[in-house]
Amino acid sequence: MTVYQLTEETAWCPGCGNPMIRRAVQQALNELGLPPEQVVMVAGIGQAAKMPQYIEMNSFTGLHGRSLPAAIGIKLANTELTVIAQSGDGDNYGEGGNHFISAIRRNIDIAHFVHDNQVYGLTKGQASPTTAQGQITSVQSGGVKAMPFHPLAMALVTGAGFVARGFSGDHEQLVTIMKAALQFKGYALVDILQPCVVWNKINTFQWYKKRVQPLDDNHDTSNWDFAFAAARQWGEVIPTGILYQVEKPTYDEQYGFITGSAPLAARELAPQQAEPLLQRFY
């Protein structure tokens, strides 16, 4: 039986990176043998965020920018679920920027896959936080004035335990990274470079292809300084792979009662259990 079945049709353009990313997610989930009833994909809004439409699995497609809060709520309610937040660069780093910082700080056990095409695809090509300075778009007709955002550097500085960069054009590596992110205990960020064939004529498939360079398989993933340098490297060479991987206590497990017996969602409710609280008011 095939699990995580893919739909035939999608609203993605030919040549887009999204279908490649979808294939990688499917393969990662299947290879890990995760039972689909125990996995939830959470998305915001955008072209990337349409991912749950096209894979047969539990999903929560919420608001633009708000995939992380929903994912966190889901994970806290049921820690037995594997939770993936999956959305675009605009969604996660722009509209949802505050949630991004907060999710890193919390170190909740979720995997975060960001499709980074350096542009707002669905809304027709405006600049995203990762669009290069000077790049011309319909709204930034004089060129983007702001400096670009460095998600991986930001994640490292804020204390993320798993930081990786993938490329939609390197399937094998992407599957490996995704599997590691899904198995990582804690917040795992994967920034996935992806061309947008219609709206980003600068960062094309070829542009990425020429620059991405997988990190040495044996590099020390606990070396923060090395990871930070690799995160910042953005020029003729863009290093890909798992930059950093070090486990720390997760937010969910710090609640204590949350893990252990049945997940919260499955626990018995009885009003009388709360009655002793009245003692505080006599």
Binding site: V42, A70, G73, K75, L76, A77
Partner: peptide
């Protein structure tokens, strides 16, 4: 809403 979707 995420928590509620997941059942609590």
């Amino acid at each position: 809403l995420g928590a509620s979707y997941a059942g609590v």
